[in-house]
Design a protein around this nucleic acid. Structure first.
Length: 677
DNA sequence: GGTAACTGGGTTTTT
DNA sequence: CCCAGTTACC
């Protein structure tokens, strides 16, 4: 709603505390914002207010956790401010902004302009490639999975701690291979450099390096007068340093966060950073937002008892503006199967009383915790979308496309070559590795040197190679993004048809990708954007999503951060899952699990349903009743449970008898399997 | 010498 | 269910 008061349009109906934050001057500002207290609107209004005060848009930098958050806030801020300035402020994730800066100063960093970005899947590819050069067929314990190796590597960077500390502390089962891992990592780093590839962590390291430079760093920081950082409790020390270098002395710095929602410890974040901002700038202004505009008080009562309240913590008690509501429930079910049926039953029941599916979300600790619920939803024909877990970019054919595209700018890109080469019939890890030798001898023009490459290849794959490579080589001369994308697909099409059984839908995906590429100016930008910010759910790339499309959301708790739904279901609250037994090695780990549950609970606007199954597949015997509430009793004492939750037993009527289905009329499925199978 | 098909084992969360 | 390591085949 825009008020009639034009010169205060940016206040956007803020309450007093929010208004104070939005209109604050240039001194360091720390906003402690509990869940659902309207920090997004506050931050948006603050940006609008700065614009209206005459601050040049390009001197405002908003750093957020997801690109979507940044884009929403900046678009809204620009609309709220009544300035004529067409330009929007700068903003994005740390990684996206880092990428822009690095691209602008690639030469300074010794990078070719066509340098590429490795997403975690790409890092895995490279790690695999390097792994093959090492002989790891020792008789001892099994060598860690490639993905685990990439995790370890990333954790060293993000925690700024050496391998020999991280492995014993966080990956004890990998300790026997410590030396081998160290050797592997050395090569991994060298290979990245040689191929002009930066992984996500390298982006942060490189940005920091730019900012650390005495003169250039000073100039870069001087170009920015106001830095606003969202979700500050989730920054790691690397990011904290970047912020400090951008806003020396805290001038023009705004920081928003909530210690109780720090859930990225595995990425090196530490809630203590938030408190340190207050301490390190004695003149900092501290504003607390405690009025919750999202949830009913009954939900917040549970949240408030869950909220970690270590002595000395900035205490926040959430108070609802939306009335009491109904007490959240904790239901015990016999096993994961009956739990899944119970959840889906309730989703359909709510749907029948008029709650759209998209107003209901199932939140889980780990992606696979929703497996049975997904099965149950499919069986009952309830549409759903899953966020977190499997990503579009992880689909093999999309990776193939991105790899082929990257070769156009950077023919030294080993990872891309490795991927593209193996797509051809008769080329596996071994031959691809061999052909890479040739690529190394012609680093600059390896694409145009394709005839030699074909000649080197074994006869079996020459046919396919001599079809695909020339098309790619010609694509280099295309200037427009759409043309390039089209050529890349042209090179890939026969390979995809040959390699994948379900080629048709995969090609469909790629057609859409080509379609969205043609809208952008620069193809390499498009590819970088795609790696840095892949579509969150498989459905997100759908050409023309219907606005009336209705689906249940399934999400990891991590991916649900910052979002809200009228009804939230939290299944799988079993010891070992929530809290994850991997977190139980340290008290810090357990505390983070508690915060995770706090984040999950505070996503609910009206209704909250918790589920605990008594018997899980990996447990030999059924747990007794005491254990069934272990997840809650680890975090809350019995009185708190009793006071804030209503406990129900679903073990008798497990929901199996309910035949609710979505969609009208009778439906009879005929078994069409041939009899001879 | 390398690829495709098979088998046994298994730590989660994301930019 | 997915991935690493092994075997059988080209």
């Amino acid at each position: 709603m825009f008020g009639g008061d034009a010169h205060r349009a940016w206040d956007d109906g803020l309450d007093e505390a929010q208004l104070q934050a939005a209109t604050h001057g240039d001194g360091p500002l720390v906003i402690l914002a509990g869940a659902g207290t309207g920090k997004t609107r506050t931050l948006t209004s603050r940006v609008a207010c700065l614009l209206e005060r005459g601050v040049a848009p390009q001197r405002i930098l908003l750093l957020t956790f997801t690109r979507r958050a940044a884009e929403e806030m900046l678009a809204r801020a620009a609309a709220l401010a009544s300035t004529r300035e067409a330009q929007r402020p700068r903003g994005g994730t740390f990684h996206a902004v880092a990428h822009q800066q690095i691209a602008a100063y690639a030469d300074v960093l010794g990078l070719p302009s066509g340098f590429g970005v490795l997403d975690p899947a790409g890092s895995c590819d490279l790690m695999d490639l390097v792994r093959g050069d090492h002989d790891l067929n020792g008789t001892a314990a099994r060598f860690p999975r490639t993905a685990t190796l990439v995790d370890i590597y990333s954790r060293c960077i993000n925690n700024e701690r050496p391998l020999r500390e991280i492995v014993p502390a966080e990956y004890p089962w990998c300790e026997p291979h410590l030396d081998a891992i160290a050797g592997l990592f050395r090569d991994f780093t060298a290979r990245k450099r040689q191929s002009a590839l930066l992984d996500f962590d390298d982006l942060l390291l490189s940005w920091r390096a730019l900012l650390r430079h005495p003169s250039l760093g000073h100039d870069l920081a001087a170009g920015v007068s106001h830095v606003l950082v969202d979700e500050y409790q989730d920054l790691n020390s690397l990011q904290v340093e970047i912020v400090q270098l951008l806003a020396p002395g805290g001038k023009g710095l705004t920081v928003v966060g909530d210690e109780a929602q720090a859930i990225y410890g595995f990425r090196g974040s530490d809630p203590v950073h938030l408190r340190r901002v207050v301490e390190s700038f004695p003149g900092a202004t501290l504003i607390r937002l405690e009025r919750n505009f999202r949830s009913r008080q009954a939900v917040l009562d549970s949240a408030n008892v869950l909220r970690p309240g270590r002595p000395g913590d900035a205490e926040i008690r959430l108070e609802s503006t939306r009335g009491t509501g109904t007490k959240p429930t904790l239901r015990r079910c016999y096993d994961a199967g009956s739990e899944a049926r119970a959840v889906v039953h309730r989703i359909l029941e709510a749907h029948e009383r008029g709650v759209p599916l998209r107003h209901q979300a199932v939140l889980v600790r780990a992606g696979h915790h929703s497996d049975l619920i997904e099965v149950e939803l499919s069986v009952r024909k309830v549409p759903y979308r899953k966020y977190g877990g499997l990503r579009f970019l992880e689909a093999a054919h999309v990776k193939d496309f991105v790899a082929a595209g990257r070769l156009l700018d950077n023919p030294a890109d080993d990872v891309a070559w490795y991927r593209v080469l193996r797509l051809h019939r008769g080329v596996g890890p071994g031959r691809a590795r061999g052909l890479l030798e040739h690529v190394h001898r012609h680093t600059t023009e390896s694409l145009s040197a394709w005839p030699e490459l074909v000649a080197l290849a074994p006869p079996l794959c020459r046919g396919e190679l001599s079809q695909s490579l020339p098309v790619l080589a010609e694509a280099v001369s295309c200037t427009r993004a759409g043309e390039r994308a089209e050529r890349v697909l042209q090179a890939l099409r026969p390979l995809v048809l040959e390699r994948y059984d379900d080629a048709a839908p995969r090609l469909g995906d790629l057609e859409r990708l080509v379609g969205s590429a043609s809208v952008t100016d620069d193809f390499s930008d498009f590819l970088a954007q795609l790696t840095l910010d892949p579509p969150a759910s498989t459905g997100d790339l759908a050409a023309d999503p219907h606005l009336d499309e209705d689906y249940v959301v399934i999400s990891t708790i991590h991916s649900a951060k910052g979002l809200e739904w009228p009804i939230v279901y939290l299944p799988h609250l079993v010891d070992g899952a929530v809290p994850s037994d991997m977190a139980l090695r340290s008290t810090a780990g357990l505390e983070e699990e508690k915060r995770l549950l706090y984040v999950a609970v505070t996503r609910a606007r009206d209704e909250l349903h918790l589920y605990a199954a008594l018997r899980m597949p990996h447990h030999r015997r059924a747990l007794d009743d005491r254990h069934s509430f272990a997840p809650i009793s680890r975090f809350l004492d019995d009185d708190a449970v009793e006071a804030t939750l209503s406990i129900e037993d679903e073990r008798q009527g497990s929901g199996r008898a309910n035949r609710h289905e979505l969609g009208p009329g009778i439906r009879i499925d005929v078994d069409l399997d041939p009899l001879w199978m």
